[in-house]
């Protein structure tokens, strides 16, 4: 069974779809990176008192 040939529309809009895909991927990377930075910072660290105890 051969694979169905992709519709002409997909070839025509490949550029646009690729752009949207890469933009979404970049957004995920940014959210992930920001989360790492925020979590590694002092904001979510253990309260000083608990550390002392």
């Amino acid at each position: 069974m051969s694979l169905r040939k992709s519709h002409e529309l997909h070839q025509r809009r490949f550029n646009r779809n690729l752009g949207v895909g890469l933009t979404l991927a970049a957004f995920i990377v940014i959210i992930f990176g920001l989360t790492i930075v925020k979590v590694s910072g002092t904001g979510l660290g253990q309260p000083t008192q608990e550390v002392q105890n």
Binding site: H7, E8, N15, R16
Partner: peptide, 17 residues
């Protein structure tokens, strides 16, 4: 519909740019 697509339509279609 591929059969109705004209060269003009393609030229007018927006790209990501």
């Amino acid at each position: 519909n591929a059969s109705t697509v004209t060269a003009q339509t393609r030229a007018d279609e927006a790209s990501f740019g």
